[in-house]
Design a protein around this nucleic acid. Sequence first.
DNA 1: ATCATTTTTTAGATTCATCTAAATTTATAT
DNA 2: ATATAAATTTAGATGAATCTAAAAAATGAT
Lengths: 218, 218
Amino acid sequence: MLSRSEENYLKAIFHLRIEKNSAVSTTELAEHLNTKPSSVTDMLQRLNSNKWVDYRKYRGVILSRNGEQAALKIIRKHRLWEVFLVEHLNFSWDEVHEVAEQLEHIQSEQLTSSLDQFLNFPKYDPHGDPIPDATLQLSRRTKKLLSNFKRKECGVCIGVKDSSADFLKVLDRLSISLGSEIQIIDIEEFDQSMRIAVDGQQKYISTKIASNLYLNPI
Amino acid sequence: MLSRSEENYLKAIFHLRIEKNSAVSTTELAEHLNTKPSSVTDMLQRLNSNKWVDYRKYRGVILSRNGEQAALKIIRKHRLWEVFLVEHLNFSWDEVHEVAEQLEHIQSEQLTSSLDQFLNFPKYDPHGDPIPDATLQLSRRTKKLLSNFKRKECGVCIGVKDSSADFLKVLDRLSISLGSEIQIIDIEEFDQSMRIAVDGQQKYISTKIASNLYLNPI
DNA sequence: ATCATTTTTTAGATTCATCTAAATTTATAT
DNA sequence: ATATAAATTTAGATGAATCTAAAAAATGAT
Ligand SMILES: [Mn+2]
Ligand SMILES: [Mn+2]
Ligand SMILES: [Mn+2]
Ligand SMILES: [Mn+2]
């Protein structure tokens, strides 16, 4: 059975791999996990010898089939718990992550599946990220960063790239949440900042904000 | 902050101390925690130096004020989660303990208090054990083992002494659950086995069963 | 192709939680 | 009171997960 630490490594490799699409490097992992490269090397050697990852000295690491399944199970639990916290325990979307980091390690198939049922088999978590179903399949949908939209284009907010509490609170202040309908009114040539309409209300937003918001184009 | 292992020790000392009412011995703890006496000694020395317990070489251990509060927090979480599992996720009372053993270690005041609220501030868990409230107070009620009842006496089932899955399943088969009204019809002199009426239905039960069932006398 | 820089790995140490085996203390039985 | 047994502690070892410092490999710039 995987230790908590091993689970965290697998999850980290999964996430970093998606962003990049090449093997994940020791340093990247170390930064993501707030640890030292030497510790990462150690752990990767262990995970490799237990066949959870495919790791080549100096060349980086990718998940094995088993490792990917394990990572998906953890992500499934993480996101289901986030839904539970928001929908039933009145957490806001910027408060759930830390607790879910703990809850994702609870080992009980029965718990995961009854929670899933209790929540009515949600497909997305409070940040718009897809929840692997019981067979670990992820649903996909077209999403485009707001920063890649052109003037006059329109979309529905369906996710965030940065899901840090800080960024989520900025969105709260702007009354932007999942489901908000956003239209680009104008783009400032100089700095690419945008004037947009959020459910009819006009707002100004920076490029940094725009490049962390996913929309589903209408 | 307490490690998971330290939390388990504190909880074990709390439970064993209640049963006995004298200091808890190294061997008892080792048996309860499925570990070796030498490991227990090690841990007790650490807990002692951090003031969680009062431990005297060869003389056993009791919880300090802090240690007791810490234990109560863990027990509070354990029992709240058990209520959640039974009332909302369709677990039966013999299935909850193992998962609650994991959930009790989740660290989040906010989680504990919103869960408490979500469950409507329950006072007892699915096994009839009292749940410490937000100020860590336990509610008390008079309970007497069925084995100490006399013929013709009556009571309502409010708890179990042995809450192992095996025993709980026996009760299920006898249709005995929390709230069942039980009257002693007859006691066999020879072996103290009993004929009782459970909500009107007559059953025979052994002394072993009778001595693990708590009733609130009517 | 060579050298300097960056990245990664190895070597060796540390802390926690556990173990076994040996030593010590306490309890008990005559 | 002594001796035997039982309980407990100490000593020394191990594995997981981490660290720092040093060595080795890869990168990339001239
Ligand atoms: Mn999260
Ligand atoms: Mn999320
Ligand atoms: Mn329990
Ligand atoms: Mn219980």
